[in-house]
Structure formats: structure tokens, C-alpha cells
Amino acid sequence: MPSNNEPTLVFDRVTVAYGSVLALQDVHGEVRAGEAVALVGPNGAGKSTLIKAILGLVPVARGAITVLGGSPAASRSKVAYVPQADTLDEDFPISAAGVVLMGRYRSVGWLRRPGRTDKAIAADALDQVGLADRAKDRFGTLSGGQRQRVLLARAIAQQPKLLLLDEPFNGVDAVSQDALLAAVAKLKADGAAVVVSTHDLALAHVSCEEVCLLNKHQFGFGPPDATLTPELLQAAYGGQALELHGDHVIVSRP
């Protein structure tokens, strides 16, 4: 276990390559327990690649990622990953409660079935995202935002120390967005660190302590006030950013 002043996640000059193609260079920074970092950058900037590297699913070519004091692969049991809901099969015959219960499988272990405690933890997680009344509904019948909340509940049921969210707010309605933000805030209050990739600069600004501004390499890593500046955003987004009188910048969504 890392001590209280040891960061949950450390990027040490991380470079990730697919074959000879550099996907991401020189990411450098750290995230502490109870804090959230927003990965901000245009499409194809390497946000998803960085999340996969934290999970140990793509190898780090140079530098190192340290998760909870160990290697990414060694720390997976304490890391929860929330995929984008629309990447999953809407026809799959499984209930919302069934999806959340999957978050317990790792701690239940092979051969055994989830017990009463696991089901209680899963029910509580579904309640935290405000969907206790939809437990028996088939996952595919829920709205996009509700499916995203179910996937977050699955991650909560894992009781993680580090939570990774891949574009959780894409195409999500306001009610679901508020529910997602509230649930993530509670996880942070309970001591989890959070990594969230997003296109939404305003959300990054209000909900995250740190911002990692990316486009193939790192343009900034630090508090939102220091990273979401007109200069850095224009550097990262290039032609996709437009400066409005002085302090404000808008960036085009994909």
C-alpha cells in the first residue's frame, strides 16, 4: 500500500509507440489519492492510448508508469476501467444489475459465484448512480447516459483505488452527467484517484484538480488555471481552437 503522501499514479517521461509510430511522447506528472486528472486534447491525441497504458494493455516504450507503487499489470485489481457505453453490444441478454455484479468477479475469484455480500455491494453501487429502480432492466434498453452510469456503478462495485473513465460524458444527457459527476466525487472523497478523458473543457475545469493537455505529446500538466490557458490550448488544438476576445477559447468538438 502506498503511504498517504505517495502519489497513486506517476507518469515518468512516458512514451507509447505502436510499432514504429509514436502515439504519445513525454507524458510527465502525477495524480494523488482523492484527486482527478482530466486528459484533454483533440481526437487522436492519445488520450485512450494513455488510459490503455495505465491499464498495462499497451506497452510503454520509454519511461515508466507507476500505479499504486507497482507496475500497471501488477496493480490491475485496484484499478477500475469504465469503457464508453456505446462500444458495448446493446443486444446482450444481461440486466443492469448483472453488469454491475461483474465488478465483483475479480474479488469473487475463479470457480466461485458472487455471494450475498457481493450482490449488496453491487446494489449499493447502482444506487449511487441513481439507477436502483432500473436494476432488472436489460442493459441495452437503457439510454446512453444510463448505460454509462451502469458501467460506472460496475467500477464502483470493484472498490478501486484508481478509476479510469474513457470519454464518459460523450452523448450523455444532463441528468446522467450530474449523476456521473456526483458518483465520481464520492469516489474521490473516499480516497480514489481518477483519470478521465474528455472533450469538455468546462467539466475538466470544475471537476478536476489536474489537467493533462495532450496532442501526441504533453502540452501541459497541472491545475486547470495553469493548463487550460489560451496559449496552451491553441498550441495543443492548432487550427481547431479559436480565441474569443482575450481570455476565452473555444475548441471544436469532434
Partner: peptide, 17 residues
Amino acid sequence: KELVLRAFDGVGARAAG
């Protein structure tokens, strides 16, 4: 249960180890 998880969410299954 592992096969169902893998069928539902392959990346998630890999992420969980």
C-alpha cells in the same frame, strides 16, 4: 461467468487482468 464477462466487454476483461 468469466466467459460472459469476456463476451460482454472484451477490453474490460483484459483491463481486469
